[in-house]
């Protein structure tokens, strides 16, 4: 390492990480534990895991689009009634059982449901989120997760959830939050809710 590198290192290290109070460090593990809703599943032996993975991948390739008659129809008047939420939960549970930890988005439309699957199993970043985006008479409804992207009429939106349980929908021209559902959203009508941690 040259002398110049040493000097730069010294300068970089002038930024200290601000310390927290002792109470914070005592509370933080409890904060984490409170968010551990799902129990740890017992270890799966490697051979069965590989078989499951291979089986799932084959199915995913062959069945990219699965028909699930969900009873949804297009139209911006569709709202999230208790029946809508219950039906969405049912659909998600069915798909998640087929593709554990690989479902990224389920697009629900009048002709059935279209799946977007991850190539590898990965725990989702949030509880499943039910999102409906309507614009100019066209509506799309999705079951997705925080961090995923969905599209309507060529525009892409990122769906996020925050620690308070709000669902955020962010596009090029809008940033909408379920915490402020009436906030103007550039002609878009959006509804979103979490489908629940227990799924």
């Amino acid at each position: 390492m040259s002398h110049r590198d040493d000097e730069l290192n010294e300068l970089l290290r002038t930024t200290c990480v601000p310390d927290r109070t002792p109470g914070y460090w005592e509370e933080f593990p409890l904060t984490v534990l409170r968010q551990l809703h799902r129990p740890v599943s017992p270890p799966v032996d490697a051979s069965s895991s590989q078989r499951l993975w291979a089986w799932g991948l084959g199915l995913a390739t062959a069945c990219l689009v699965l028909g699930f008659f969900a009873g949804f129809r297009r139209g911006h008047a569709v709202g999230f009634s208790a029946a809508d939420v219950a039906q969405s939960r049912k659909i998600y549970q069915e798909v998640a059982a087929l593709f554990p930890d690989r479902v990224q988005t389920v697009l629900l439309n009048g002709r059935g449901s279209q799946l977007v699957l991850a190539s590898d199993a990965q725990r989702p970043a949030s509880a499943p989120l039910l999102v409906q985006i309507c614009h100019a008479g066209d509506c799309r409804r999705f079951i997705t997760f925080s961090g995923q992207r969905v599209a309507l009429n060529g525009e892409t939106f990122e769906v996020l959830s925050d620690a308070e349980g709000n669902v955020l929908v962010v596009g090029e021209r809008l940033a909408w939050s379920s915490g402020e559902p009436r906030k103007a959203a550039a002609g878009y009508h959006i509804r979103a809710t979490a489908l629940g941690e227990a799924l």
Binding site: W25, F28, V32, L33
Partner: peptide
């Protein structure tokens, strides 16, 4: 797990 969090949180 809480103990592991406590040990590595900083």
């Amino acid at each position: 797990f809480g103990r592991l969090v406590g040990r590595h949180q900083r």
